[in-house]
Deep mutational scan, measured.
Amino acid sequence: RTRTSFTAEQLYRLEMEFQRCQYVVGRERTELARQLNLSETQVKVWFQNRRTKQKK
């Protein structure tokens, strides 16, 4: 599997969503992935990694 390189715009949007809600599921995840031109899996994993980073 190749590592995803997020654009600055994608990271900004993901961070904004994370500040709003640390868990994104269902339709929200589908819509966010579509808007950012990413897969739902990429969005899901980004949120998982971001929550892990916050715990440290």
Results as ranks from 00 to 15, higher is better:
T7Y: 02
K55S: 11
T41S: 13
R1V: 10
Q54I: 08
V43K: 01
W46Y: 11
L14C: 04
L11E: 15
S39H: 06
L14S: 00
L36Q: 03
L38N: 00
T4R: 05
R51V: 06
T30D: 04
T41H: 12
R34H: 07
K44Q: 10
F18K: 01
E40C: 08
Y23T: 14
Q35P: 00
K44P: 00
N37R: 10
G26L: 06
W46P: 03
E9W: 10
Q10L: 01
L36Y: 01
R20I: 05
E17G: 02
K44G: 11
M16D: 14
T7A: 05
K56E: 14
E15W: 02
Q54V: 12
E15P: 00
N37W: 03
E17L: 03
T52P: 03
V45A: 13
F47D: 02
K53W: 12
R13S: 11
R50I: 00
R29L: 07
R3E: 13
Y12R: 12
F47Q: 01
E15A: 01
T7Q: 03
V45G: 09
N49I: 11
F47M: 08
L11F: 09
R27Y: 10
G26P: 08
R3K: 15
G26I: 03
V25N: 06
Q54E: 14
V24I: 11
E31M: 04
S5R: 03
F47E: 00
Q22W: 05
Y12F: 10
Q19K: 13
R1F: 14
K53R: 11
R1N: 08
E28V: 04
L32C: 01
S5I: 09
A8R: 06
V43P: 02
N37D: 11
R27F: 09
N37G: 12
F47C: 02
L38S: 06
L36N: 00
R34I: 06
Y23I: 10
V43M: 01
M16T: 11
E28I: 02
V24L: 13
E40M: 01
V45E: 15
Q48M: 10
E9T: 04
T41P: 09
E15I: 01
R27D: 15
R27M: 14
L38T: 05
K55L: 14
R3P: 15
T2W: 03
R3F: 15
Q35N: 08
E17S: 06
E9H: 04
N49K: 12
N37F: 08
E28D: 11
V24W: 05
L32M: 06
R27E: 15
T30M: 08
N37Y: 01
T41V: 10
T2A: 08
Y23W: 04
E31R: 02
A33P: 00
S39G: 05
C21V: 11
A8F: 04
V25Y: 05
Q19C: 08
L32Q: 00
K44W: 09
V24S: 11
E9I: 04
F47L: 05
L38W: 01
K56V: 13
R1T: 04
Q22G: 13
V25D: 15
Q10N: 07
T30S: 10
L32I: 04
Q54H: 09
T2R: 09
E9F: 13
E40P: 06
Q35V: 07
R3C: 15
V24P: 09
R34K: 08
R20L: 08
L38A: 07
R50L: 00
Q19H: 07
E31G: 04
R34T: 10
G26D: 09
Q42K: 04
K55T: 15
T7S: 09
A8D: 14
R1M: 14
F6I: 11
L36T: 07
Q10Y: 02
T7P: 02
E9D: 10
K44D: 14
F47N: 02
T30I: 08
K56M: 09
T52C: 09
V24Y: 04
Q35A: 13
T52F: 06
Q22M: 07
R13G: 08
L36C: 09
W46H: 07
T41Q: 15
R51A: 06
Y23A: 14
E31T: 07
R1K: 15
R50C: 04
Q19Y: 03
R27S: 15
Q48D: 10
Y23H: 13
E9Y: 05
R20F: 04
F6W: 11
Y12L: 11
K55Y: 08
A8L: 09
T30A: 10
R50E: 13
V24H: 06
F18M: 02
Y23R: 10
V25H: 12
Q10P: 02
A33N: 01
R27T: 13
R34G: 12
E40Q: 04
L14Q: 00
Q10A: 08
E9G: 05
T2V: 14
A8G: 08
A8P: 11
F6G: 04
L11M: 09
K55P: 13
F6N: 04
R50Y: 07
F6Q: 05
A8C: 08
Q19T: 11
S39V: 04
M16H: 04
R13E: 04
V43S: 03
Q19I: 09
W46R: 01
W46V: 03
Q35D: 12
Q54S: 10
Q54C: 07
S5G: 12
V45Y: 11
Q42V: 09
M16A: 12
T41A: 13
L36H: 03
E40V: 06
E17T: 06
G26Y: 05
N49L: 11
R27I: 15
K56S: 14
R27K: 11
V24R: 07
L32G: 00
K53E: 15
T52R: 07
L36R: 01
T7G: 06
R50S: 04
T2C: 00
R1G: 12
L32W: 00
K44I: 05
N37A: 08
R34V: 11
T30E: 13
Y23M: 15
Q48W: 03
A33Q: 00
V45N: 07
L14F: 01
Y12K: 12
W46S: 03
F18A: 02
C21R: 08
V45S: 15
E40S: 07
A33G: 05
F6M: 13
L38Y: 00
S39K: 07
E15G: 01
Q19M: 10
L36M: 08
Q19F: 06
R50P: 00
L11Q: 15
R13Q: 15
Q42D: 13
F47K: 01
T41E: 14
L14K: 01
F18Q: 02
Q54W: 08
Y23V: 11
L14G: 01
F6P: 06
N49A: 09
Q22E: 13
R50F: 04
K56W: 14
R50Q: 10
V45P: 03
T30Q: 06
F47G: 00
V43G: 02
F47T: 01
Q22L: 04
V43D: 02
Y23C: 09
Q19N: 10
V45F: 12
T7R: 04
Q48L: 11
K56D: 15
R27G: 12
N49Q: 12
R13D: 05
T30K: 08
S39Q: 06
L36W: 02
Y12D: 15
L38Q: 00
G26S: 09
S39E: 10
T30Y: 14
E31W: 02
C21H: 08
S5N: 15
G26W: 01
R13N: 07
Q22F: 03
E28C: 05
L11D: 13
R3W: 13
M16Y: 09
E17M: 07
L36V: 09
T41G: 13
K53G: 12
L11G: 07
M16C: 11
L36E: 00
T2P: 10
A8M: 10
F18C: 02
L38H: 01
Y12G: 13
T4W: 10
E15M: 00
Q54G: 13
T7D: 12
Q19R: 06
Q19W: 08
L32A: 01
E17Q: 06
K56Q: 09
R3G: 15
